[in-house]
Write a protein that binds this DNA or RNA. Structure first.
Length: 415
DNA sequence: TGTCCACAGGAAATACGGGGGT
DNA sequence: ACCCCCGTATTTCCTGTGGACA
């Protein structure tokens, strides 16, 4: 019998949702929400499934000397994003410290997290905070002073000190100063034996180093291979078991997620994100996670990425994109030249009462839009009619429409 | 063959903000 | 209150350039 009243329909819907719930514990879909112990347990479970075995083995042999009183050299770890570098290292170093303690070897490690790009100053500052050398300054203190503070705080410690520098290449500007300090200066000022662990996702990272630092830096190298589809399936299964109700995922869907993520980067984070999105879609649809839903999740993630990126982007970048969109509309699909886009941008600024930037700066904004894949641009010469970027909007229409909405909201525009 | 357009994109200068030491 | 230090954002100035056109 058809439900008649609002109340009936509501009860019906709720019962349906309960019966077809997919997500059991959403916390396990988002690492941020887990407490530290849970995170470590999760990692352990993943490693137990013999994922990352070779890497852990290599790490062990690299650091084994510590327990014998040797001094291992520094270590450089490479691998693409989402291959578990940070996780593995954290886990490993914790274990190592514990093990060393049980054998009366004094080992300390600090994790200097540079996962967001930051200048030399903040990096040094963070390091100083980690070793308890100073409180968190924002500005206004000289680099020298930070270094001295750090040295003093560490001066009379003995044993081993492992500094785990996560995502080194995120130190913008004066990277050499930063590294010179770590590699050359610090070891001479402290009693403890220093072992540096650098993590980076770019293989050619040491190439662009100051030669004086480079020659000083004796490195052992370790490469994290991207996860393959099998690893990813392991990881997904562990998540699924913890976060979802049993029997809510089609087997083929797991394979598909693993395959997709493995295929394009071997990035575990992406795989989990895809699982999460699929799970929410399934919950909404009141079904299991099916292949079709995975496809839909891929599309939505794609779209979300753009929208999220734009939401948090600086105003000028939004305005620039608005200009490109407008110019692009006007050009009816043909490519737009820099000048045209700039004019449109200036008109837009005029309309919303914002001061437009110079042409030079606009060029940089375009470059930025390009790296975020909002637009595609290439420099083309039209002979005597000059050289320009030819700009095309490289995004599906629906997404462009959504982006326009974001921009309109931001600038309080109607229509 | 040389000219010259319409920009690209590097370098340095400037503006602005804000925090620390004294 | 003053000066110093640092960061980011932007401007100003500049040199460079592929190739259609005269």
């Amino acid at each position: 019998m058809e439900p008649q009243t609002v109340r009936d329909r509501m009860v019906d819907r709720i019962q349906h949702m309960l019966k077809h719930a997919v997500i059991k514990d959403p916390r396990f879909l988002d690492d941020e929400q887990l407490i530290r112990a849970e995170q470590l347990a999760l990692i352990e479970e993943i490693f137990n499934a013999s994922v990352r075995d070779t890497e852990i083995e290599e790490l062990s042999s690299h650091f084994a000397g510590i327990l014998r009183g040797d001094h291992p050299c520094h270590l450089a770890v490479w691998g693409k994003t989402g291959t578990g570098k940070t996780l593995t290292l954290t886990y490993f170093l914790n274990l190592l410290t514990e093990l060393a303690k049980s054998r009366q070897v004094d080992v300390r490690h600090v994790h200097l997290d540079l996962s967001t790009p930051q200048p030399c100053f903040r990096a040094l500052n963070n390091l100083a905070c980690l070793v308890g050398a100073s409180k968190s300054h924002k500005k206004g203190i000289s680099l020298e002073e930070l270094m001295v503070n750090t040295e003093e705080a560490l001066a009379d410690q003995s044993g081993y000190l492992i500094i785990f520098v996560d995502e080194v290449d995120n130190v913008r500007r004066d990277r050499d100063t930063f590294l010179k300090f770590l590699v050359r200066r610090l070891p001479q000022k402290i009693r403890a034996r220093l072992i540096l662990v650098f993590v980076s996702n770019r293989l050619n990272w040491p190439d662009q180093l100051d030669p004086r630092v480079k020659s000083f830096l004796k490195l052992n190298e370790l490469l994290f291979k991207p996860y393959d589809a099998r690893d990813l399936e392991h990881i997904l299964n562990i998540r699924i078991e913890k976060a979802l109700y049993p029997d809510t995922v089609e087997l083929a869907a797991i394979k598909k997620i693993g395959g997709l993520a493995g295929h394009d980067h071997g990035d575990a984070r992406k795989a989990v994100a895809l699982l999460v999105k699929s799970a929410y879609l399934a919950e909404k649809a009141g079904t299991k996670i099916t292949l079709a839903l995975v496809d839909q999740a891929v599309d939505e993630l794609h779209c979300d990425r753009y929208v999220a990126l734009l939401r948090t982007a600086p105003v000028q970048l939004k305005a620039a994109l608005a200009g490109v969109i407008e110019a692009s509309d006007r050009a009816k699909g043909r490519a737009v030249a820099t000048g045209g886009a700039f004019d449109a941008y200036r008109r837009f600024c005029d309309r919303v009462g914002q001061r437009p930037l110079s042409g030079r700066a606009f060029g940089d904004l375009l470059a930025e839009l390009d790296v975020h894949a909002f637009i595609r641009s290439s420099v083309v010469s039209h002979g005597r009619r000059g050289r320009t970027r030819e700009i095309t909007l490289d995004i599906p229409r629906e997404i462009v429409a959504q982006l326009s909405d974001v921009i309109r909201m931001d600038f309080n525009l109607r229509r």
